[in-house]
């Protein structure tokens, strides 16, 4: 009895002749009925999809709440930073020994470089003769 009614409704449905009410009836029938005849199972898929699709809504943008670092993490991170600073000698103002030695080495280096450069300058005076090369060479070519 019921199935006959559904059968005719399905025919009407395929012909595009069902009203919205009748289509709702079909949807309800197919969502509630188990043990459907094999040839009706495809309808069930379609109707249940249509019902599901109607509930889809505009995705509400989840506000990106920046999960603040946990306080414990913050403490651990700052401790780690302090530790590495300590290791790299950031706080070591008492490294005067190294500094004095470096200054001594630098002074020594400066003295040596000065003597080298003064010897270089001696040689460079002789280089002045080279300037004559060009002028005499030009005269010869002419």
């Amino acid at each position: 009895m019921e199935t006959n009614k559904i059968e005719t409704l399905l025919k009407k449905y395929l012909e595009g002749e069902t009203t919205l009410k009748e289509e709702t009836l079909l949807k309800v029938y197919f969502s509630e009925t188990e043990n459907l005849p094999e040839e009706w199972k495809s309808y069930q898929q379609f109707f249940s999809f249509y019902q599901e699709a109607k509930n889809e809504s505009y995705p509400i943008q989840k506000k990106k709440t920046k999960t603040l670092l946990q306080p414990i993490l913050l403490v651990a991170a700052s401790l780690a930073i302090l530790f590495t600073m300590q290791l790299s000698g950031f706080f070591n103002s008492s490294n005067s020994y190294d500094q004095i030695e470096a200054e001594n080495v630098f002074k020594e280096f400066q003295v040596q470089m000065k003597s080298v450069s003064s010897h270089l300058n001696n040689g460079s005076q002789n280089l002045a003769y080279l300037a004559y090369w060009n002028t005499t060479a030009e005269k010869l070519i002419k």
């Binding site: 595009g16 002749e17 109607k54």
Partner: peptide, 30 residues
Amino acid sequence: EIEQYEFEEIASILNLPEGTVRVYLSRIRK
């Protein structure tokens, strides 16, 4: 199928005669 509009409403939205909407829909359903 999803928004469940009447044929009349669909016809005016799509700017088609109501009969055409039914025919199209029938064809697509099949």
